[in-house]
Design a protein around this nucleic acid. Structure first.
Lengths: 142, 142
DNA sequence: ACCAATCATTTATGATGCATAAACGATCGA
DNA sequence: TCGATCGTTTATGCATCATAAATGATTGGT
């Protein structure tokens, strides 16, 4: 069984879960980064998302128009933009989490609670390894 | 732990594994379908891939130019095109399998052999459930 | 105080992938 | 013979994405 093959059945479900937010994958990734790392410099965000800074502007414009983020300026260096998640942005992420959990429930419905627990444990260790390798040699999506 | 979150770390690796083939995801999906179901009617393939028949033509042209498939006609109904995997196509799929197995090895390197076995077992049952739901209500990627 | 560098931004451009539609030739079934 | 089916060609539009050049505001160094 190949882990990569999981995506073949999962992709449509994930797209369906993302659709209600009306946001593009990139914009959701930006929100997730902001939730994980707190208020971040715009430049840092561009690096994380592997997006050209000039293109990040449009992404942030959309998110700002939807009141999911707020822009401010670093007081120590007013050139730097500080991007922060709004309460509304946090709620959107929570909705997304719920939708994704729904996928888990659907896909793992044939597993017992105990089996799900062991599966989650093993996957958690696996993604932890992936995350570690990501920090060493960053790549898109990490 | 969300299964959907797996893709965040896996996507770049999968893209990297696919890149050497020079094929697009759709074309690889077509090859996989052909391997699983044997020689198939072109129309069936279009349904499986959720692609408009007129767009499938270009996909098959590429695959045919690369000698990965062969086109023929159904003798009982010469309107119908029969698409078949070539030996070369099979070899490309095997290369892809090897690359994807490499991802498994990298991601699951921190797991013992026994843990990998149980993980594979649980995932196999999960994807089986997904496949069953796919057959009931087909969606893209199924 | 001047000046080069940095940061966000605007604007333009092109490539790519994907979806949709219309029309055509070949072929089939009635 | 005639309508329907199948693969195909062609055209069109849309969305995403990458890249580049130029600008205004701001900074730090000299």
């Amino acid at each position: 069984m190949l882990i990569a093959q999981l995506g073949r059945g999962l992709r449509p479900r994930i797209e369906q879960a993302i659709a209600p937010t009306g946001l593009r994958p990139r914009e959701l990734l930006a929100l997730q980064h902001l939730r994980e790392r707190g208020p971040s410099a715009q430049q840092t965000l561009a690096d994380l998302l592997r997006v050209d800074p000039s293109n990040l502007v449009g992404v942030l414009n959309d998110l700002e128009d939807a009141d999911l983020i707020v822009r401010s300026r670093d007081r120590a260096d007013r050139r730097r933009g500080i991007i922060e998640l709004t309460d509304q942005g946090g709620r959107v992420l929570q909705e997304l989490d719920r939708a994704l959990h729904g996928i888990d429930d659907a896909v793992l419905s044939t597993l017992t609670e105990r089996e799900r627990a062991t599966l989650n444990g093993l996957l958690a260790r696996a993604v932890e390894a992936v995350a570690g390798q990501c920090s060493e040699q960053p790549e898109p999506g990490c």
